[in-house]
């Protein structure tokens, strides 16, 4: 990230951050900040709400209206805030466990309502803060402190889940593909409705070490080597897709009314004003 953006958007005196050496969370947060800057949004008009976990500590570093709330439940708080002040650009930061396990119900309902929130899922495939337990996004066959004999649970594709539940914008990028990540976050913020961006990132300390790929750069190289741009992905056979994942904007639709705008119609009906 550019130095000028660190100075503009990071709270003075709060760096270095608490993340481990090589943790991709800092890179993802940098991409979010760059996307906000590219969109030209005033800091006062951004709210940055997070749950609990490593990635959720991101809210404390950035100079917006910020809240580090409870585990898995940043989305309801963000929804209430957006209802109170629909002019705010509300960004939600959540980890894979935060978002897909304890917060899974809130995710599908925020998607169903199509509230204009931008959810960034920092997916490092592990619970990092508590020391390396498997999450619903941990690939099957991985080692974790709570899976000493390897995981047997299939992982969610968080974007398929969100899209099926009604999310009107889904995109994926990695901490290696920084310009792409920045670009899809920008598009997600611009999208009027519920946007979910999966940021594939690395946890060298708690996922890498247990799964024999501890070097941060090698984990990032893995992202480079396994991500496939959406346009190419669409031309690949199932055999070619094995072990890979698509990146880029994966879906966008604009035929569903945004929730706070739909609610304005409720107010007009209740007040007997015709639309």
């Amino acid at each position: 990230m550019k130095e000028a953006l660190v100075e503009k958007y990071f709270r003075a005196g709060h760096l270095p951050h608490l993340w481990c050496p090589g943790c991709g969370n800092g890179t993802v947060l940098g991409a979010i900040v760059t996307a906000i800057d590219n969109r030209g949004i005033d800091k006062n008009d951004v709210a940055f709400i997070s749950g609990i976990g490593c990635s959720s500590r991101s809210s404390g570093y950035v100079d917006f209206n910020t809240a580090n709330t409870v585990h898995g439940r940043a989305l309801p708080i963000a929804t209430g805030l957006k209802m109170a002040n629909p002019k705010l650009n509300v960004i939600v930061a959540s980890g894979d466990g935060d978002c897909s396990a304890i917060g899974g119900n809130h995710l599908i309902h925020a998607a169903r309502r199509n509230v204009d929130l931008t959810l960034i899922v920092f997916n490092n495939s592990i619970y990092g803060m508590t020391g390396g337990q498997y999450s619903p996004l941990t690939p099957v066959g991985s080692r974790a402190t709570t899976a000493p004999y390897l995981t047997i649970e299939p992982a969610f594709d968080i974007l398929d889940l969100a899209r099926a539940a009604g999310a009107t914008f889904t995109a994926r990028a990695t901490s290696y593909h920084v310009p792409l990540l920045t670009s899809v976050i920008e598009k997600g913020i611009a999208h009027k409705g519920f946007s979910v961006i999966e940021a594939v990132t690395a946890c060298p300390t708690n996922f890498g070490r247990q799964n024999k790929i501890a070097a941060p750069a090698l984990m990032m190289a893995w992202q480079r080597d396994h991500a496939v741009m959406k346009a190419k992905w669409d031309t690949m056979t199932d055999a070619e897709r094995e072990g890979k994942f698509p990146v880029g904007v994966l879906s966008e639709r604009n035929d569903v009314k945004e929730y706070t705008e739909a609610y304005d119609e409720i107010i007009r009906r209740a007040q007997g004003v015709s639309a």
């Binding site: 990230m1 130095e3 760096l15 270095p16 993340w19 991709g24 800092g26 890179t27 940098g30």
Partner: peptide, 11 residues
């Protein structure tokens, strides 16, 4: 380097 540094330590 600047783009990927997770710690905003190189510009």
């Amino acid at each position: 380097c600047e783009m990927r540094c997770p710690d905003y330590a190189i510009f």
